[in-house]
Design a protein around this nucleic acid. Structure first.
Lengths: 319, 319
DNA sequence: TTAGCGCATGAAAACCTTTACAGATCATGG
DNA sequence: CCATGATCTGTAAAGGTTTTCATGCGCTAA
């Protein structure tokens, strides 16, 4: 059926040990033998059985990636980055989508744990204690979340918010609404904290409550935002901002004439709508790549904080 | 380190064989023994090493999923469906994104082949011969592509196109542009064929050439569409349609007042823009699920063709 | 010439699980 | 009390790879 190392060994007239050496430790085998083995292996289409290899080396060559919702375009971008980088490093990627169900996450990770060398976790809502337990069981790198002692990749939220607020201030906005995301989300807490810090003394902040981090969340809160008499609104993320835009358009509210809208994430979609969404771009593919690097280099203490970038588009204008 | 079957066996005072039987073949072991083993296994946190199991059973409990571009929101939806269904069946999912590079696909699949029980292939562009070879090496189910002899999940393109054209005809459109996707894509050929069939005698079809199946493709062809003096345009997919909408908006062309726009796929995004996009909805998560079912042989059919549904939204109106 | 060394290779053990087969235990009927 | 059969459990092999250790060989230096 499948071609095994023995088939190659027999065809090359050497032992299995020599085959494995020729392929994964080439310098220890005589060049003539090595070349012959390699050639025969290639012609037979031999690839080592990774399960068997993993059994003895303890390393699987796989890694796991957990995301809360592929429906949010933020995450496919991360997946792309992880995927690409992992393949460069000759690793395969297990993907799990938890469908925004934090309860299921830990279980999923534990099931994957045996089959992977490490796990990348996009888990804004999982309890911190749970996360810490997990990190003790299997190498973990957190994506867009920070917990002391656990390696992580995040972005400079504070700087991003500063860019956003400066932009609005420059346009003359003095009273700005913030539509928050899920209260339990780390990213939400972080964004809110950053925003409060940078808003202090510069703009008056109106918090309009928490919504689901989705398009519908933005739609549902849009009318409340309008009632607040603000000249600009910052949304938890782009999806929520798009929900706002949608409802504003439906009500005939002009953006940015009547109100400016600012998002967070810079999902591809944001450049496609009209008016295009001004937003704080977070590195996504880059974050995925950085996460893989952290995981595979096993620098367990390390942490990376990537730069953010305000993307000024059509949805913001003078107050 | 990790807890193995021997640890459980020792703790329970039985042999490894009894442990494995107690857990995966419970009826053949005496109830009292079975319960004790199960209890101890649970308390030790024992999970069988899937690699080792796979080595002997020949089944891995994993499956592979290949998509051309996660950046196209069509595919994350499929991934979600696959993922959810696979987990229900206690299988894990390897994901590979080929970044629209058909050349890389076959290699990726072959590398994965040893680690999976089967592969789901979203591969609109791979050469048919290559695909057939692959299907001979590892169980394959094709998603949104059909090749004789290979199990596949597709949708009723013809019926979808019929719904779309009937809708336009009812609105009084008689001259309709079609923006085609990549010439090498199966879906493109299929859509074009269906469209020609249903358009015959009902509307005059203007084909405006092939574009990349992305937002930019739509943007780049929008002006050419306008020059054709049509009252409606059908795009290869939603992303292209959104590109059209974007460019139309920038040029001050009113949709649907000046021209109606119709997409294909129904990606989540299409309902979020303004005007919302009228489009032919293809089952995505459902297709993923059906694919998994086919692969795991929970279903004995070789092929499934899922229904499509025209979603009438704001981008189409009277001619 | 031979001891000694380095190098290339092979044999065998190990990784963890499942399963075919054999052995052990026990109850039952004769 | 023994033979028989049923039920339960243990032994050992198998699966494909990597790695440790040992072997054999040719060569150099004494």
């Amino acid at each position: 059926m499948a071609v095994t190392i023995k088939d190659v060994a027999r065809a090359a007239g050497v032992s299995a040990a020599t085959v494995t050496r020729a392929l994964s430790n080439p310098e220890v085998v005589r060049p003539s033998t090595r070349d012959r083995v390699k050639e025969i292996a290639a012609s037979l289409g031999y690839h080592p059985n990774r399960a068997a290899r993993g059994l003895i080396t303890g390393r699987t060559g796989n890694l796991g990636l957990l995301v809360p919702d592929l429906g949010n375009p933020f995450f496919p971008s991360i997946v792309k980055g992880v995927q690409a980088r992992a393949h460069e490093a000759d690793h395969a990627v297990f993907l799990a989508d938890t469908d925004e169900d934090p309860a299921a996450e830990a279980g999923l990770v534990r099931k994957l744990a045996k089959q992977v060398d490490g796990v990348l976790l996009c888990s804004p809502r999982m309890a911190e204690a749970e996360l810490r337990d997990l990190a003790a069981e299997v190498p973990v790198v957190l994506l867009y979340r920070r917990i002391p002692g656990v390696p992580s990749v995040t972005a400079e939220f504070l700087d991003g918010m500063r860019q956003a607020v400066s932009h609005l201030v420059a346009l003359g906005h003095r009273r700005v609404a913030y539509v928050a995301g899920p209260r339990s989300s780390w990213a939400n807490r972080e964004r809110l904290r950053s925003l409060r810090t940078v808003a202090k003394g510069k703009v008056q902040l109106v918090e309009t409550g928490n919504v689901a981090p989705q398009f519908e969340g933005g739609v549902s809160v849009a009318d409340r935002v309008l009632a607040e008499q603000v000249t600009a609104v910052i949304a938890y993320n782009d999806l929520v901002a798009l929900g706002l835009l949608h409802r504003f358009a439906a009500r005939g509210v002009d953006v940015p004439g009547d109100i400016s809208v600012l998002g967070f994430d810079d999902i591809p979609l944001s450049a496609m709508v009209h008016p295009a969404l001004t937003t704080v771009a977070l590195p996504k593919e880059l974050a995925g790549q950085a996460g893989v690097d952290l995981l595979l280099r096993r620098q367990h203490k390390e942490r990376r904080e990537l730069p953010t970038q305000l993307m000024v588009r059509g949805s913001t204008g003078p107050a």
